[in-house]
Amino acid sequence: MNPSADPGHTPLLSEAELQQLSRLIYARTGMTFGEAKRYYIERRFAVRMARSGAPNAATYLAKLPLDGAEMQALINAFTINETYFYREDVQIAALARDMLPELVADRTPGSLVRIWSMPCSTGEEPYSIAIWLLENWPMVDAWHIEIVGSDIDSAAIDQARRGIYGERALQRLPTDVRERYFLPERNLEREIIDDLKESVQFGVANLIETRSSRAQGKFDVIFCRNLLIYFDDDARQLAAAHLYDCLNPGGFLCLGHTESMNRISDRFELVRFGDAMVYRRR
């Protein structure tokens, strides 16, 4: 049962406070929240309010715009980090088989090729890309491959840099791959080897902030999967514009399998590589 639907339940946030918080989160992240998600909101809000020492919701809300660290901690609490290695791997397979060979066809060996995982959550996706290329693209050593993982959640980025994962995250990785790229299991977890950690650069970034997205530079391939589903139309338009700006002409954009760019922007064309559907910057 949702406690907020219980007539005897006293809401932590008034309707006005809920709207104020929702506007604040939306302005910073593009994610939409409202009355229908009150229970989800109040649970996370209550934890952060208690840890901050604020006596009530009004005091905490007044504090947020003045406390960047606490604002970041609240954003971290609201982000969703559901991922694992080799998730939706048909696109990663197409990256090695189709996208990269096409992109480097007219480049000099040794040239820079940049790949962006945004949002990268706790690092499984960018590390998966690195592993897949090492395992499946014979030409990987002929190019300067730069993989960047970014997320708005600073705690997730810290975890990605540590590179320590449990069985659930690793369940789709073949045993021989685990042995090559992870240290022996310890306390039911395995840590990525240092050479692989060094192949991915991690940092905090916000896709709907122009300055933050532009600071990442230009990329040949962007993986932006399962993020746009949390945005409303305005935030999707803004995100699409920033993705377009961050892609080199002819570069590829990979979205989640339930997402589509067709109704958001006409500046990308749909491309099929076998079972994988991706978008190319026109």
Rank of each mutant, 00 (worst) to 15 (best):
S4C: 03
S4I: 00
A5L: 14
A5C: 01
G8N: 14
G8M: 07
G8F: 11
E17I: 04
Y26E: 02
R28K: 10
T32I: 02
E35K: 10
E35C: 07
R38H: 12
Y39K: 07
Y39I: 03
R43T: 15
R44Q: 10
V47A: 12
G53E: 07
A57D: 06
A62P: 04
L66S: 13
A69V: 11
A73L: 07
L74K: 10
I75N: 14
I75D: 08
N81T: 08
T83P: 04
Y86D: 10
D89L: 01
D89S: 11
I92E: 13
L95H: 01
R97N: 09
R107Y: 05
R114V: 05
I115V: 03
W116M: 02
S117Y: 03
M118H: 06
T122Q: 08
P126N: 05
Y127W: 02
S128K: 05
I129E: 00
V148C: 08
G149L: 04
G149F: 06
A160R: 12
A160V: 10
Y165Q: 04
G166Q: 10
E167L: 07
R168M: 08
Q171Y: 15
E179C: 01
Y181F: 12
F182G: 09
P184N: 02
E185P: 06
R186V: 12
E191N: 06
E191V: 01
D194A: 04
D195K: 00
L196Q: 13
V200A: 01
V200R: 03
V204S: 04
A205Y: 05
N206S: 03
N206D: 10
L207T: 01
S212C: 03
S213N: 03
A215V: 09
A215D: 15
F219I: 01
D220E: 11
V221Y: 09
C224H: 08
F231H: 07
A235L: 11
L238C: 11
A241N: 13
D245F: 14
F252K: 05
G256N: 13
H257F: 13
N262T: 11
I264E: 00
S265K: 13
D266P: 11
R267M: 13
F268Y: 07
R272C: 07
M277P: 03
Y279I: 01
R280G: 01
R282T: 14
